[in-house]
């Protein structure tokens, strides 16, 4: 039960975390030299980290 809950938590925060990431990158683009064309790999890293975290919680046993 706990594993399921953790997993669904990870899935649920995926969207918000992406949103914050994208927002931060655009903010950097607008007000610093870090233009979006340079910082986009951060999105890859964040997606990878989120996936990795999801893996850290075992998928619940299913029928």
């Amino acid at each position: 039960m706990n594993g399921t809950n953790n997993l669904s938590l990870m899935r649920a925060i995926r969207g918000p975390v992406m949103m914050i990431t994208i927002g931060t990158l655009f903010a950097l683009d607008h007000m610093s030299a870090f233009s979006f064309s340079r910082t986009w790999p951060v999105i890859l890293i964040v997606i990878g980290l989120m996936k990795l975290l999801e893996r850290a919680f075992p998928a619940p046993a299913q029928s």
């Binding site: 910082t39 890293i45 996936k51």
Partner: peptide, 20 residues
Amino acid sequence: FPLLPVLLIALGVIFLLDNL
């Protein structure tokens, strides 16, 4: 093995470092 996540992170880090 979390191949996709590791690949994503590795590619992201490499491209980021190159871009910067």
